[in-house]
């Protein structure tokens, strides 16, 4: 099994074999980050551009650390300090970056499909670090890696995803990935946050959180995007947290061994109570971040250069 894609645009395009190859490669990369010298010469002389049109701490840092541990040179561009503020279009920015001969461009953009547009325009490998409400493939891969490590498998597990499904690229990538890997995915959220016809993706949908997390092996809480409060999709944070906050009480409905995940950043007390988020017997939130570096090293390795 070899990885022969030019880009990583979404989990939707990946086969089960490709997902397994990425996860196994990432498992091998975990060890590199535990060394005293956390660097291997593999991508020496390669240039990786992190092009972030949206705010990010975790993902951008994670990609940068991953690239540096592989000896690649990294350049970070954030929209607020670039020519974007002078009105340059994405296509023009991409063509200009291409002219400087990088090897991989990692892009985050608020428009769904922006990485796909880029991939069709430039010869470099494109990695989608989140596009609008569409996909966030590296997050889903690190989530799958965490589940696989904690549970020993993905197939057959009951996995509940709770929150604002409609605006969540993390949810969409995970639904694609987890379903492909044979998990049973249930969703819960207010009706205004559940996209219509989402059942067609092979998931069970509930409006009551308790129904979705009953008997679950994994509970994945999504961040409430506070910036959407004025879009009238939920009456108040207080009401939302009364119905959809994971806490000591409702977690008892899940399996005793159930793990809790969250893609970050946390809104403590809104979608997850602090005692759950900080409970080492339940929360694997920091494991997810740890796996993120290994997953991104695996992708940079698999895509890194050598393409025509």
């Amino acid at each position: 099994m070899k990885f022969d894609k030019k880009d990583l645009l979404g989990i939707k395009d990946l086969s089960v074999n490709e997902i397994n190859l990425i996860l196994e490669t990432a498992e091998s990369f975990l060890e590199v980050s535990t060394r005293k010298i956390k660097k291997v010469p593999t991508l020496r002389g390669k240039t990786i551009i992190n092009l972030f049109y949206e705010a990010s701490t975790r993902t951008r840092t994670s990609f940068e650390i991953a690239a540096k541990r592989l000896s690649a040179d990294t350049i970070n561009i954030s929209a607020s300090t670039s020519s974007v503020v002078k009105g340059e279009t994405l296509i023009d920015t991409a063509r200009n970056l291409e002219a400087m001969n990088p090897d991989i461009i990692v892009i985050r953009h608020s428009a769904s499909g922006a990485p796909h547009l880029l991939a069709s325009l430039v010869r470099q490998s494109i990695i989608n670090a989140g596009d609008g409400a569409h996909e966030h493939p590296t997050q889903a891969l690190l989530d799958m890696m965490t589940i696989k490590e904690k549970k020993g498998k993905i197939a057959g597990l009951k996995i509940a995803i709770v929150g604002d499904i409609a605006h969540s690229r993390v949810a969409r990538s995970n639904i694609y990935g987890l379903s492909k890997m044979g998990a049973h995915v249930t969703l819960a959220g207010p009706a205004t946050m559940i996209p219509r016809h989402i059942e067609q993706m092979g998931v069970k949908v509930f409006t009551k959180m308790e129904d979705a997390i009953a008997g679950a092996d994994v509970i994945m809480m999504l961040r409430i995007q506070l910036e959407r409060q004025n879009q009238n999709i939920f009456p108040s944070l207080r009401e939302y947290s009364q119905r959809y906050c994971l806490n000591r009480g409702n977690i008892g409905l899940a399996k005793k061994t159930a793990i809790v995940m969250h893609p970050g950043p946390l809104n403590r007390g809104v979608e997850i109570s602090p005692d759950i988020a900080d409970d080492p017997s339940r929360s694997v939130i920091l494991d997810q971040v740890n796996k993120g570096v290994a997953v991104r090293m695996a992708l940079l390795y698999l895509l890194g250069g050598g393409h025509e």
Partner: peptide, 17 residues
């Protein structure tokens, strides 16, 4: 990860632990 042909290899070899 230390191979001298790795950066030019079109298809990356499988990585072991």
């Amino acid at each position: 990860l230390y191979r001298d042909d790795i950066s030019t290899a079109k298809k990356k070899p499988r990585l072991g632990k």
